[in-house]
Design a protein around this nucleic acid. Structure first.
Length: 473
RNA sequence: GCCCCCAUCGUCCAGCGGCCUAGGACGCCUGCCUUUCACGCAGGUAACACGGGUUCGAAUCCCGUUGGGGGUGCCA
């Protein structure tokens, strides 16, 4: 608030000011998150402010639940904003006043054309948009009239884009666009331009899809005598496999979904920073402080980037492994389906799990044998170890059953014991342990066997081995 | 159609006129390590879209072609 007041009073702040301005008409998706992140990175690097504005002027499509979801995702990613959140809807009156001042100055006029009218009049296929039909008809305001901006007829308008260089438009291609709808509500462009000015935004950093709206934005700022931002930077779009702009409809890209699927925020944030930008030293995975230090808007690649979940997953695995044991346990627990009784054993196995988990939900199937009465039998594993090699399985299960009855119940003793049993049967440990593993955990793969047996306990282990022996073909 | 933008391995990024025989990462493939898996380690695969210039010299600069993306609402 106070920053807005200060600017209204004409105080020009020397502090660079960035903003992220999502509209709460959907969840925060990775494309928006990347735009927010790039604003945040640059703001943090140069000691600027990062403001948040919720563009909720479309009442029909906006919802406060969606706003909360966006904020939640921002917090999760660690993108902290400065000052109070600005809700655009609260400034609607000012925007309407702005539009009316243009009307008073002769820079806007009322129009009662319907979209059908406009389309119908179009003879030249190369023309687009509104044809200026009502420009001089001097129509009075009415229930079906929209207020249109009187765009200049000739000249060019350009701006310097930090990422794209000089971008120039011929104003002849700019139509007389709508400022106020017939409902009386201001359109995005007006609200956006006026709010950026009232908030004292110096750096406008947003998606490439806004490039074409920029000349209109500038025309409005000039007409309203609001000055211009110091810097524009239009970020490349994030695209899907078919190289189309990521859409919330087509692509499942909500940040919240990634969280639910077991991604760590640090991994997501680090990966997102590398979409359209890369550090000169080629070190991709690094602390956010180092990214902030190296990030530069002017180094952002202008071409669209594909969001590669495979690579994100790799980043996640790296970040999972970098966690302390306690952090890992905290992170993984919500993804486990375990009773309180097995939490302690899982704690013991945590380092082994941590090494193998790529996404947090990967952990559960590695430890489900601990709390299930019977392990989940993986058919392929059973077939391979217990059916195709039934003789070996029978031999090992019987011999180990006997040996395990006496052995000290810790992983080292178990290891030595099974090694000896295997050798007695002419088998290397790799082969010898397979039937035991499948009998106890149901699968050929999983965390280290002897540690698993140790936490499972002697009774349960022997019980499962007997059951497996009985089930052999 | 018109307007704006873009173009290095399959993908992401490095490269800003000579260090390029084009580097790193993901993916994929080999091998090693090993109690399975995973990790780790050692290798391999694979790109400057095309055509003209400029220059002693071009992935790097310019022009064109082709290809791709974005925009083109009384959505944001």
């Amino acid at each position: 608030m106070d920053h807005r007041r200060a600017d209204t009073l004409g105080t020009v702040s020397a502090t660079p000011r960035f903003r992220f301005a999502p509209s709460p008409t959907g969840y925060l998706h990775v494309g928006n998150a990347r735009a927010a992140l790039f604003n945040w990175l640059e703001a943090r690097r140069i000691g600027g402010e990062f403001l948040l504005r919720i563009e909720d002027t479309d009442r029909e499509r906006s919802s406060s639940d969606l706003t909360e979801n966006i904020l939640e995702s921002m917090r999760w990613l660690g993108l902290d904003w400065d000052g109070d959140i600005v809700h655009q809807a609260e400034h609607l009156d000012a925007h309407v006043d702005g539009a009316r001042s243009l009307l008073a100055a002769g820079q806007a006029y009322w129009c009662d054309c319907t979209p059908e009218d406009v389309d119908g009049r179009r003879t030249d296929k190369s023309a687009s948009g509104y044809d200026g039909h009502c420009r001089d008809r001097d129509i009075a305001e009415g229930p079906t009239t929209a207020l249109r901006f009187r765009a200049p007829d000739e000249g060019t308008i350009s701006f310097d884009d930090l990422i794209r260089g000089d971008v120039t438009f011929d104003v002849a291609t700019i139509e007389d666009f709508v400022l106020l709808r017939s409902s009386g509500l201001p359109v995005f462009l007006l609200s956006n331009a006026m709010d950026d000015a009232s908030m004292g935004i110096t750096h406008v950093v947003r998606g490439e899809d806004h490039v074409n709206g920029t000349p209109k934005y500038l025309l409005l700022r000039d007409a309203l005598d609001l000055g211009r931002p110091d810097v524009f930077a239009h970020l490349p779009m994030l695209v899907n496999e078919s190289r189309k702009k990521l859409s919330k409809r087509r692509d499942s890209v909500a940040v919240g979904d990634f969280r639910e699927r077991g991604y760590l925020p640090q991994a997501m944030r680090n990966y997102l920073a590398l979409l359209g930008w890369g550090p000169k030293d080629d070190v991709e995975i690094r602390p956010i402080a180092e990214i902030i230090e190296r990030f530069r808007l002017e180094d952002v690649n202008p071409a669209p980037a594909f969001f590669d979940e495979k690579k994100l997953e790799h980043f996640n695995a790296e970040y999972v492994r970098a966690l302390s044991t306690d952090e890992f346990i905290d992170a993984v627990t919500p993804f486990l389906d375990q009773p309180a009784a097995t939490l302690e054993p899982i704690r013991q196995m945590a380092p082994a799990l941590q090494q193998r988990v790529r996404l947090l939900p990967d952990a559960e199937p590695m430890v489900d044998f601990l709390h299930l009465d019977q392990p989940v039998r993986d058919d392929a594993s059973w077939e391979k170890v217990m059916v195709k090699n039934v003789d070996t399985a029978r031999q090992m299960l019987a011999a180990a059953l006997e040996a395990f009855g006496e052995v000290d119940w810790d992983h080292e003793a178990l290891h030595a014991c099974l090694l000896a049993v295997g050798e007695a049967n002419g088998l290397k440990l790799g082969k010898a342990q397979a039937p035991i593993r499948v009998a106890v955990t149901g699968r050929t793969v999983g965390p280290p066997l002897f540690e698993s047996l140790e936490v499972l306990g002697r009774d349960a282990t022997l019980g499962r081995m007997r059951a497996a022996l009985d089930a052999l073909p």
